[in-house]
Amino acid sequence: MDEKGITLINAFEIPADEIDAFVEQWRERAKLMRDAPGFRDTRLHRAKLADARFQLVNVAHWDSVEAWQAATENPAFRASVGTVPRAVEANPALYDIVAEY
Score class of each variant (00 low, 15 high):
P85R: 02
E73A: 13
E100W: 09
R43A: 15
E66P: 15
E100P: 11
D20N: 12
L8R: 07
D2R: 02
Y95F: 12
E18Y: 05
D96K: 13
V84G: 05
L8S: 08
E3P: 08
R40P: 11
L94E: 04
P85I: 00
R27G: 08
E24S: 08
P75Q: 10
A71V: 12
H45L: 06
I9L: 07
E89I: 13
Q25L: 14
G5Y: 15
L32V: 14
V65A: 07
I97A: 08
P85D: 01
Y95P: 01
N74E: 02
L32S: 09
A71Q: 14
N74A: 01
N91L: 05
E24A: 15
N58S: 13
P75V: 15
A21S: 09
L8V: 15
Y101R: 13
A93Y: 07
E18R: 09
A99N: 03
L56S: 03
D35E: 10
K31M: 07
E18Q: 11
A93L: 02
K48W: 04
V98K: 12
W62C: 01
L94G: 03
D41Y: 11
E89Q: 13
A16H: 06
L56H: 09
V59L: 10
V81E: 07
A90W: 00
D63N: 12
R27N: 07
N91Q: 09
Y101S: 12
A50S: 11
T42I: 15
G38E: 08
F54E: 00
P92I: 00
D41C: 12
L32W: 05
I6Y: 09
P92K: 00
K4F: 15
V84H: 06
L44D: 05
V65C: 04
R53W: 08
A50M: 08
V57H: 04
V57I: 14
N10S: 01
A70K: 14
R29A: 02
P15T: 04
V65W: 11
K48N: 12
H45W: 12
I97R: 09
P85C: 02
A90K: 06
W26M: 04
T72I: 10
A93P: 14
A11E: 13
R34D: 06
D2Q: 06
N74G: 01
A90N: 08
K48Y: 06
G38S: 00
M33R: 04
F12L: 04
Q25I: 05
M33H: 03
P15S: 01
W26D: 05
L44S: 02
R34N: 12
F77Q: 00
A60Q: 06
F12D: 01
